[in-house]
């Protein structure tokens, strides 16, 4: 009787107006059977965290192409923790240098980082794998 679906928030934090990537990923997650809530552009970290709370998502996916990931990702992670959502899977996608990605993951701000060239299947199976 129970029918759980993976709910994913796809968010574009900060002053970055490019969301083709976020849309392509959102579409792929949809086709993998997930419910994808898309925030639209120019979200503040507070908006992202509050949306994650109201929508009770299992995953937050941040798309950042503006180079501000080292500021935005830790801030959003902290706000999620403040909202008692520390267990939410936090995934980042965008133009993220490898050394930054390592810091984000090792410091516990992000669970995974995807960059250009990563296959959509890889992103989908990473998420579904986490919930099986």
């Amino acid at each position: 009787m129970t029918s759980k679906k993976i709910r994913v928030l796809v968010a574009k934090p900060g002053l970055d107006g490019h969301d083709r990537g976020a849309r392509v990923v959102a579409r792929a997650l949809r086709d993998a059977g997930m419910e994808v809530i898309y925030t639209g552009l120019h979200q503040t970290p507070e908006q992202v965290a509050e949306t994650a709370l109201q929508e009770d998502v299992d995953v937050v996916g941040l798309s950042i192409l503006s180079g501000t990931h080292m500021t935005l990702v830790p801030k959003i992670k902290r706000l999620l923790v403040d909202n008692s959502m520390k267990d939410v899977l936090l995934v980042v996608g965008g133009i993220i240098p490898e050394e930054d990605a390592m810091v984000l993951i090792n410091e516990g701000y992000a669970d995974q980082v995807f960059t250009p060239g990563d296959a959509l299947e890889k992103i989908c199976s990473y998420i579904t794998g986490h919930f099986t």
Partner: peptide
């Protein structure tokens, strides 16, 4: 989707100005 069971829930895009208003609760 009748095929994958997934969905794109995009209504809140238009409402995000109210996301931080504590008296407004939006659920997709």
């Amino acid at each position: 989707s009748p095929f994958s069971g997934g969905a794109i829930l995009g209504d809140r895009i238009r409402m995000q100005d109210h996301a931080l208003d504590q008296e407004v609760f939006i659920r997709s």
